[in-house]
Design a protein around this nucleic acid. Structure first.
Lengths: 353, 353
DNA sequence: CTGAAAGCGCTTACAG
DNA sequence: CTGAAAGCGCTTACAG
């Protein structure tokens, strides 16, 4: 069961009647080897299914790699990015001995210009690869093109950039997440005439592409499975909680048939708070992300389901995938979708943060 | 951000005015070092927060470890154990270069004596640690005691052994899983008078402790949250599918108020098939495990929810935890609960097998 | 109680 | 086009 190939470069050299340096040349396609010699060595390599000892390889070539980490800082706005950050730290710790170092460039999620600034700083430094959360699509696209020009490999987490050549995308399938949200929302309806409300809460002028994608998945589900259910849509500005509350309250008062609410991001706790304060226990509520603010309402019963995408694992896998690409030169899948986890009051204690 | 400590054993030796051999002695508490020398070296180690280079350490000391893997073989009965096995293989591949080899001892889940036989074989070989699925509790307990006597560290996956001194348990919290099943079952009820049926399907004479634990969690949930819901229990023998079908059919005919069915293990596809054949679409169904047989009914709509516990990850973490304990001498948590995953038609495609 | 030296399996100049 | 040799950071006999 998986014996490490017991023969090394030395034995191969002996069998091929060459020196270990020549074997090494063939192994890494460094050229400067006579055709016949190369073929002979390659035959032996294939025959014994040679795998280099990574420990020895990394130990000797103590090439250092620096990974630029371009992600949002944890803000009072949202603690979401704490989890990916922790995953990143853990991964870096595990591969510490492989000569890999992370360098963080944290930007402010409500300030586009900080993203641009941090990405400029990153470019100025000499990083070997980049892990980025492309939160601002046009800016991130421009930055990605710059990285491509400079042949610096990069990887996306949490959300995607169309038409760019990243090593890998690690994050949710947003359309699928919307569909899962819809399935759960529908499950919570009681009567045939119950209606559904989708709420977008954002501080940006126009809702982010990602939120649109989620909403599209949500509507698609209802249209193809339950076309008779009336689905409302409401956009609310983040920032002034009072205004938000007032608008929502009015909307609900005008539409008493609404029975299930779906909030398309982690701001679901705003709505949960309102429902709890107003004693609207008959309304069911679904939203995103395993945040302390949300958990409290999940446990209290105001939120029925949270949909999560393993934020910590996203960070962890991001680093590990870069390691795989850079150091181990192994294939990394171009898309690595996270599971769409359903978290409830009963299973939340076992959800890996 | 996590710089590998740039100073090694050589620099420490220089600073302490000793040889590297002496530093090594202090590092590994090998003794034979003058007190004053030891203290001085220790101070330096603490000051620079020294972490040994694992690559170099493992490369030199090419001590080999053999891990005995005592788990069920994949049978026509259930393909469940394919996933943990795959996780085990993957983990072994990743740590191959650390000198760790796995040796499988696969037993037959419907034959107690094969467990005993395999465990004897394992003891005869000289393994350094054991990963086991303690499927037969008394037999596994006896084996565990033998391992404890011989000071061979072992780890449990999938289910637990009371009162034994394993390094770690990796698997589900069964009571919690039962509660999640109950929450979902309740969600699927439509009317106040709807009733619930719990089904145990097993080939053993008396249901396994683990199944009991799940059922206890299930009942607990209803008792403390919805004491008025009538919950039936039914035990069915695996083996003859016709008899099983007949019994279930009779039971359902006699109890027409039953609306939701919960099967306490992966045999839920037996029930799904029956319901589908009989066109009993009004009955909702919940069971365990991401198996091909079950997925087909989940996608078809006969099964509403599958509860899963990351079988592949259980195997993967099992090996990695032994590696951590044996090779890296790091602490391993005594209990590592798996998440209680809720899998539906909409999110099953994103569930990591 | 302590140190000098060999060597794990590779990579990397350097010499020819 | 090829090889001899040094060395990555450790561990392990062995000698004193």
């Amino acid at each position: 069961m998986l014996n490490s190939s017991p023969v090394g470069i030395k034995e191969i050299a002996k069998r091929a009647n060459v020196s270990i340096a020549t074997v090494d040349r063939v192994l890494h396609n460094r050229g400067g080897v006579a055709k016949a010699t190369k073929i002979k060595i390659q035959e032996i390599l294939d025959e014994i299914d040679y795998h280099p000892n990574i420990l020895a390889s990394r130990l000797k070539s103590n090439k250092k790699y620096i990974l630029g980490i371009l992600i949002p800082e944890v803000s009072s706005d949202t603690t979401f990015w704490e989890a990916p950050y922790n995953g990143i730290i853990q991964a870096l710790r595990e591969i510490d001995n492989y000569g890999i170092n992370g360098k963080p460039y944290l930007f402010n999620l409500s300030d586009k210009s900080s993203f641009v600034k941090r990405s400029q700083e990153l470019l100025a430094d000499n990083v070997d690869a980049v892990l980025m959360a492309p939160s601002f699509v046009p800016e991130a696209s421009r930055f990605a093109m710059e990285l491509e020009d400079r042949q610096i490999p990069y990887l996306l987490i949490d959300s995607i950039l169309p038409k760019r050549e990243y090593i890998s995308y690690i994050g949710p399938n947003l359309r699928g997440s919307g569909a899962v949200a819809a399935q759960l929302t529908h499950l919570l309806l009681k009567k045939a005439k119950d209606q559904v409300l989708v709420i977008n809460i954002s501080s940006l002028k126009k809702p982010n592409v990602n939120l649109k994608e989620i909403e599209a998945g949500f509507h698609e589900y209802f249209e193809s499975n339950y076309p008779n259910v009336h689905v409302h849509s409401l956009s609310l500005k983040d920032g002034n909680l009072k205004t938000l509350n007032q608008k929502l309250q009015n909307y609900l008062a005008e539409n008493p048939a609404i029975r299930s609410i779906f909030v398309t991001n982690s701001r679901v706790h705003y709505v949960a708070r309102l429902l709890e304060e107003q004693g609207k226990k008959h309304l069911s509520l679904i939203g995103f992300d395993y945040l302390e603010e949300n958990l409290q309402y999940l446990k209290g019963g105001a939120i029925d389901f949270l949909i999560c995408h393993k934020p910590e694992q996203q960070g962890y896998m991001g680093i590990m995938s870069l390691h795989q690409h850079l150091v181990l030169s192994q294939e990394v899948p171009n898309v690595q979708f996270m599971p769409i986890d359903i978290v409830t009051k009963e299973n939340c204690d076992f959800y890996p943060n």
